[in-house]
Simulated assay, not measured.
Amino acid sequence: MMTNKQLVLQTDFGLADGAVSAMYGVAKTVAPALHVADLTHEITPYNIWEASYRLYQTLNYWPVGTTFVSVVDPGVGSERKSVCALTKTGHYVITPDNGTLTHIAKFFGLKAVCKINETTSRLPHSDESHTFHGRDVYAYNGARLASGQLDFSDIGPKIDPATIVKLPLQAPIVTADSITGMVDILDVRFGSLWTNISLDALKQLNITRGDQLLVTIYHDNAEVYQAKLPFVRSFAQVALNEPLLYINSLVKVGIALNQASFAQTYQIGTGHAWKVTLRKLS
């Protein structure tokens, strides 16, 4: 069994109350020596897409065998399944089957998935609670798995990874003179836009650093922003508050202002309604 004795938690709970601490407490009660870390607890409430993306952003930088628990669960207590996935990278993810595994399945692959029995495989004496599976089901099973008390094969019946709920993913469209993608997510603290346009897509149009690109952003097909942006290596290559296009830590195109929030300045959001088109200027 691959076990690294590390448990990483992600939720939309925030830190204003005791919910996250309760999850820590359950994990430490199950396995006092277990190392518990936070991915984030600031996922926008109920935003499953964001939870999926943050796992994709982070998972592969943790050692093989690490167990992740992700709880963004607007359907808690409903008929949605609770699952544990073993990724092809050798990591475990315990989460609701509500789309949270979308990016992991697409970019890393799922080797196997087990269904968790929410009635029998849960924190002792928590039977009457049906609204805090993050504590009673996910942190409990995550700690047992990460500490080696529970083997993946014993979690529950295997289910076909192809049947896992997935949110729609759109691939960028590359034409002879342009690339159109979407704003996947924000670099929240700094307000940069992270798109789904890869560096490889830029290379298809022979776009290299130093080029000027015409960047157009649409919301529901209506143009909301257009400007010429330099494609640079780092923020420091443009003046303060000037726009730029760069390659982010996931090797995708980012759009930013140097030391200012692009998203806030231009009121740009994320998701399928927000399109970005890049054209190389001669």
Rank of each mutant, 00 (worst) to 15 (best):
Y225A: 04
Y140V: 07
R233C: 05
Q149I: 06
L244E: 07
L205V: 09
D177M: 02
I164Y: 09
K252D: 15
V253Q: 01
L199V: 13
K158Q: 14
G254F: 04
D184A: 15
D154W: 01
N206S: 14
P161E: 05
D177C: 05
V137Y: 02
L186E: 04
A236F: 11
V137P: 03
L244N: 04
K252H: 15
P161R: 03
M182H: 10
L205I: 12
A227G: 01
N248Y: 07
Y140D: 00
L202Q: 08
V137M: 07
V238Y: 11
F152L: 03
F152P: 05
A143Q: 08
A256N: 08
N248T: 10
A256E: 05
L205F: 11
G210Y: 11
A171Q: 03
Q237E: 15
I185V: 15
L167S: 04
E242P: 10
N196S: 09
V188L: 11
T216L: 00
E223N: 01
E242N: 10
S249K: 08
P161L: 07
T208S: 15
G142K: 05
Q170N: 12
S198F: 10
K228G: 01
I164W: 01
G148K: 01
A139N: 03
G156P: 15
F235H: 13
T195V: 03
A143V: 01
L240F: 11
D177S: 09
W194V: 12
P157H: 05
R209E: 12
T195I: 01
N141K: 03
I159R: 02
K203T: 11
A146V: 04
L213H: 09
T163D: 14
A222V: 13
G191H: 14
L145P: 05
K228F: 00
V232C: 01
P157C: 10
N206G: 13
H133I: 09
N241P: 06
N248A: 08
G210I: 12
F231Y: 15
D211I: 14
G156N: 02
L202P: 06
D154S: 04
F190W: 11
R189Y: 13
F231G: 05
P157S: 04
P161S: 06
T195M: 13
S192G: 09
R209V: 02
Q149S: 02
V224N: 03
K166L: 11
N221A: 10
A143S: 08
L214T: 07
A171E: 10
I255F: 03
G156H: 02
R144Y: 02
Y225T: 00
Y225M: 10
P230G: 14
A171F: 04
T195W: 12
D154A: 09
F152I: 00
R135Y: 09
